[in-house]
């Protein structure tokens, strides 16, 4: 028989699962409680985790152990404190400095990497010889890749009216887009069902087993 905290955890998990699924009936206090516990726990966990796993080892410990070696860390420390000025309207303008630095840095680093990975390499991956000797289906797949990419791009070219041959190509692009949206929807349905499977497995393999154990204990 499992310990008290384990049993408590199982029943709490059961209650919260049921509370969340009760939303299928309608919005209700049980759902609200479960939702707010989830949000509160996430925020609390993140807050504590940030202090103990980011701020203390990366900032406070280093400054305390060797201030002369790590004195530059004072700058990000001050920038971090400036973020807290958001809490009062009068001083909120000061938070623009760390935010602008973060956005600028992210954009600078991201621009180079995204240009390389999402533009150059992705475009290069489309510039292929579609015909694979002895492999009919790979050839069909490659032709679809090239056709789908080109017609999809044509659809998003709005400087010319979509009519005639150009319109036909753009319409083909729409079909490719619709098929890809359909595939994405299918994947989303699969993800949601997977989560339901996870919960049902918990109910069947953990909660129900615990319930039968408790009932057996009550009657023996």
């Amino acid at each position: 028989m499992a310990g008290f905290m384990t049993v408590f955890g199982i029943w709490l998990g059961f209650f919260l699962t049921m509370a969340i699924y009760s939303f299928l009936y309608k919005d209700n206090p049980f759902y609200k409680v479960a939702e707010q516990i989830f949000i509160g726990l996430s925020a609390g966990y993140w807050f504590v985790y940030t202090i103990y796993n980011i701020l203390i080892p990366n900032l406070f410990n280093k400054l305390a152990e060797a201030p002369s070696k790590h004195y530059l860390l004072i700058i990000p420390g001050i920038l971090g404190l400036l973020m807290l000025t958001q809490l009062t309207p009068k001083s909120a303008w000061l938070s623009r400095y760390p935010i602008s630095l973060m956005i600028g840095t992210t954009a600078g680093i991201g621009m180079v990497r995204y240009l390389s990975s999402d533009v150059i390499k992705q475009a290069t991956a489309t510039m292929i010889n579609p015909f694979v000797a002895g492999d009919f289906w790979s050839t069909i797949g490659n032709l679809m890749l090239v056709t789908g990419t080109l017609t999809g791009i044509v659809y998003f070219f709005f400087s010319k009216k979509h009519e005639g041959v150009f319109g036909g190509v753009a319409k083909t692009g729409v079909y490719f887009l619709m098929i890809s949206f359909g595939a994405a929807f299918g994947y989303t349905a699969m993800a949601r069902i997977s989560l339901l499977i996870g919960r049902v497995m918990f109910l069947k393999d953990i909660w129900f087993v615990n319930l039968t154990e408790l009932i057996a204990k009550l009657f023996t």
Partner: peptide, 13 residues
């Protein structure tokens, strides 16, 4: 599964 369609294009030539 939700993320997969966005990542699949990286399995490429």
């Amino acid at each position: 599964a939700v993320t997969a369609p966005n990542i699949l294009p990286y399995v490429n030539d």
